[in-house]
Design a binder for these strands. Structure first.
Length: 415
DNA sequence: TGTCCACTGGAAGGGAGGGCTT
DNA sequence: AAGCCCTCCCTTCCAGTGGACA
């Protein structure tokens, strides 16, 4: 019996038509051979970088665009192409890619650059320990070891500035005056324009000698991108004709995010595959949309700090009691009882007020400031997710499991 | 028209923790 | 190791406020 059952699962998969030819093509990290609708940006960047081939230092570049507008992939594409051509003409070019979301301190950025050359110089900077000055001196030494062009790509540069200030940029943008052999130029990538305000004007003017803007894709452009990738990712005829347009339309709604579009297409395929369906249909796309949204929401809630989780649970309880929308005071009193229950020192109402705003920003709840006249000014708080989902997530959280057994009387007494 | 509620949200400052410097 | 500094999280204090109600 057991074997028959298992057997039938295997049979089902054996006979199901294969969906994916090459799933890698749909990953964010994949660099396609062609980038639709980015010709203008590619040409701009090429113009900016082309002096390298004549032995001149190219301008620094500042690249701006929202997430999923193809900034990183375009830069990678252009720099790889530049390297290919320059190799052919015997112009030594090194491109160093630094993701500042991960490498987010001055020290680590400099260390990363020095370590890029460790094969050649034999110098390796440890993760911590050296004074920053020394790393910088070492950097100059290894970079200047011979005549060459060094292009430093600082992706998510806004994160670096916000965390560590603009000292790194200050030193990197004027490093050329201290080098004899090598020339350095910088490509800064950001999805936040406001971060420029934090920059020293001298750094800013030096960094944005040239600027390249990546506007969001519209639905038609997203469709072209998806079609191009789908050709390599899926077997022929497994995609219903409505699938790609729907993925494109849904992603266009989310500020034209190509990453989101690719995720949708990939997850749709995965769902179809798991169902053993012969084709990917629009129904699978809707399911994928729901899954992605749920997954991100779940991830957000899971990584919430403890007090925010307890706070969220008090809103869940109020919801189950039919007492939403509630105001700050109500939520705070339930929160305090819950803290009491699990032996947690409660935060002050002032702090909770901020945490409520944070939950609102994350889209988990809605908090609107209203004035109830005689009855004061407060926030009106609503839940944006079903209580069931929250409980489900807390089920696996050892600190919060005990909350799941708590019920609330209509007088808001915990039972 | 004024009062007064139930907060809001700014400001200042404490303390823990982490990284850099000495 | 010790000192310093910065950042983050949080508390305390408080002036400010939109509008129902008298």
């Amino acid at each position: 019996m057991e074997e028959n059952y298992l057997g039938s699962i295997f049979e089902k998969y054996l006979h199901a038509r294969k969906i994916f030819k090459n799933k890698e093509v749909l990953r964010h990290s994949y660099t396609p051979k062609e980038l639709p609708h980015r010709r203008e940006q590619i040409e701009n960047l090429a113009h900016i970088l082309v002096p390298v081939l004549r032995g001149e230092t190219p301008s620094n570049v500042f690249v701006y665009g929202k997430t999923g507008t193809g900034k990183t992939v375009t830069i990678k594409f252009v720099t790889e192409e530049l390297k290919r051509i320059s190799d052919k003409h015997d112009v030594p070019v090194d491109v160093i890619y630094v993701n500042c979301e991960i490498v987010d301190t001055q020290y680590r950025v400099l260390a990363n650059i020095v370590n890029y050359f460790k094969g050649e110089s034999g110098v390796e900077v440890p993760l911590v320990g050296w004074p920053t000055d020394e790393v910088y001196a070492k950097l100059k030494e290894v970079v200047d070891a011979r005549e060459r062009f060094v292009i430093i790509v600082l992706d998510e540069i806004d994160k670096l500035i916000k965390k560590s200030g603009d000292d790194v940029l200050y030193s990197l943008t004027r490093i050329n005056s201290e080098l004899v052999n090598a020339k350095v130029s910088i490509i800064g990538i950001s999805n936040d324009l406001k971060f420029k305000d934090y920059l020293d004007p001298r750094v800013l003017s030096s960094l944005s000698e040239e600027e390249v803007v990546f506007p969001p894709y519209d639905a038609t452009q997203l469709r072209d991108i998806l079609l191009q990738r789908a050709k390599d990712a899926f077997y022929e005829d497994v995609l219903d004709s409505g699938v790609v347009p729907l993925c494109a339309a849904l992603a266009a709604r989310e500020h034209g995010d190509a990453r989101r579009a690719l995720d949708l297409l990939r997850v749709s395929g995965e769902i179809a595959e798991r169902e053993g369906a012969p084709k990917v249909t629009e129904r699978h796309v809707w399911k994928a949309q729901e899954k992605i949204e749920q997954d991100t929401m779940e991830e957000v809630i899971k990584t919430l700090p403890l007090h925010s989780k307890v706070l969220l649970y008090s809103i869940v309880l109020l919801d189950e009691n039919g007492e939403l929308p509630a105001n700050t005071g109500d939520v705070y009193s339930v929160y305090k009882s819950l803290c009491d229950y699990i032996d947690l020192e409660p935060l002050t109402q002032r702090r909770i007020s901020d945490l409520i705003n944070e939950l609102d920003m994350l889209g988990i709840i809605n908090a609107k400031v209203v004035s109830k006249g005689r009855y004061g000014r407060t926030k009106e708080i609503r839940l944006n997710i079903t209580p069931y989902k929250v409980k489900n997530i807390y089920r696996h959280d050892s600190q919060l499991q005990s909350l799941l057994t708590v019920n609330m009387s209509p007088q808001r007494r915990l039972l």
